[in-house]
Design a binder for these strands. Sequence first.
DNA 1: TGAAACAATGCAATACCATTGCATCGCCCT
DNA 2: AGGGCGATGCAATGGTATTGCATTGTTTCA
Lengths: 140, 140
Amino acid sequence: MAHPQEDTLIAKQITPTAMRLLVLDVLQQHPAALSLADVEQLLGHADRITVHRTLKTFTDKGLVHRIEDGSGAVKFALCEPGCTPEQHQDLHVHFFCTRCRETSCLPTVAVPTIPLPGAFQVQETSLVMKGLCERCAVAS
Amino acid sequence: MAHPQEDTLIAKQITPTAMRLLVLDVLQQHPAALSLADVEQLLGHADRITVHRTLKTFTDKGLVHRIEDGSGAVKFALCEPGCTPEQHQDLHVHFFCTRCRETSCLPTVAVPTIPLPGAFQVQETSLVMKGLCERCAVAS
DNA sequence: TGAAACAATGCAATACCATTGCATCGCCCT
DNA sequence: AGGGCGATGCAATGGTATTGCATTGTTTCA
Ligand SMILES: [Mn+2]
Ligand SMILES: [Mn+2]
Ligand SMILES: [Zn+2]
Ligand SMILES: [Zn+2]
């Protein structure tokens, strides 16, 4: 009966701990997707490995999704409440800004379903667009 | 007036060298996209850094394109003859097989043009599908 | 032809990012 | 209190990408 963030974790079958609540808070406060290093830095001085395992747990339980934006580091962003590890609801496009290097979810832009020739069995589709984000575009 | 592969390099403004011809040959012989480590292994024992810089040169000159498939290592594949560093002709979908970990170009499947809301300025779109490739799908 | 100029190569070193092993800590339950 | 178990933190490791620098090779031109 404490912070509502505890309920968020419990709803995803994640035992609430101090570290996990802190990581969740950082993810909720930040609009952009965050890398492991980003989270570590925003937390002050938390142990990198613990943050890593926290994000892995969050991913396994369907609380966050991974974004491979080609920047070298995987980014993480919160999922929609309805997402499960098996079935993600928010299959949207991601945008990587080549100037400020921020990665954003575009929840309103769905990943299109593309039929493939032959016998391919598609499990997952990742669509990343690169360019200038809205902030950097107007600033140029 | 030697190998036709020399002409391929010269057409892209790349000085032909022994190493570059070897790397080009490996890329032409293999249907799948190759990582730096793949090329190094297929060449026997070539220097990893030289191969790295060879692939960088090939990319800069528009002879190959980079594929970030989320496997941890960037893959490289030959471009269409008409590609230039500024304007790639072959903006196609890539497929990463989660079983055999091979990445293939799907030259017949074009990346769709997706309009974005707001002031985003798109420079590049990368679309990677993951699942079972044709070979692994029938073998399961 | 010989030396300068430039490009390409190879070895060493470095920088990240990600992941694992293992000991310890903290919490819950009996 | 004590056992059990998950979470944490430090150390160590593996993998990929990249840079510095000396050397080698090749082209250019006096
Ligand atoms: Mn997202
Ligand atoms: Mn391709
Ligand atoms: Zn930006
Ligand atoms: Zn396969």
